[in-house]
């Protein structure tokens, strides 16, 4: 399938193009998959921007992995922005785990205590 081909692309912009194509194919009948692909395209765009701004590679990481990495690197504002962008509730357990675990991993003890 086209998603399979997309996943094999090395370059982010090409991957995104293929996902966009897949989204167009799904659009008429499969709402769920269209949404998944929308999210993925949004994620790659953000990852490309992050790479441009901070010189860190996020390529191929999942949403949670990306946010986790941002927290570990102490880019908490960026992480917060992504949380809102992807509508993860800040009272959800998922968010709590993600934040606590990665603050600890990044040794951000002050932040962890505040949190």
């Amino acid at each position: 399938s086209i998603v399979k081909v997309a996943l094999k692309q090395q370059r982010d912009d090409q991957k995104m193009q293929m996902f966009d194509e897949a989204r167009r194919l799904y659009a008429s009948k499969e709402v769920f998959n269209t949404n998944i692909l929308n999210d993925e395209i949004k994620l790659i765009k953000i990852q490309m921007n992050l790479e441009k701004n901070y010189g860190k590679k996020f390529n191929g990481k999942s949403l949670f992995e990306t946010i986790g990495e941002l927290i570990r690197l102490k880019f908490l504002d960026e992480a917060e922005k992504m949380r809102k962008e992807f509508k993860i509730s800040d009272s959800s357990e998922a968010w709590w785990h993600l934040k606590a675990k990665n603050l600890a991993k990044g040794s951000c003890w002050d932040e962890l205590e505040k949190f």
């Binding site: 769920f32 999210d39 949403l63 949670f64």
Partner: peptide, 18 residues
């Protein structure tokens, strides 16, 4: 089913879509 699938993709990435 959609909740579980969406969360899997969010946590582990598109590589599990197939």
């Amino acid at each position: 089913l959609e909740t579980y699938k969406r969360e899997i993709i969010r946590a582990y990435g598109m590589k599990y879509f197939e």
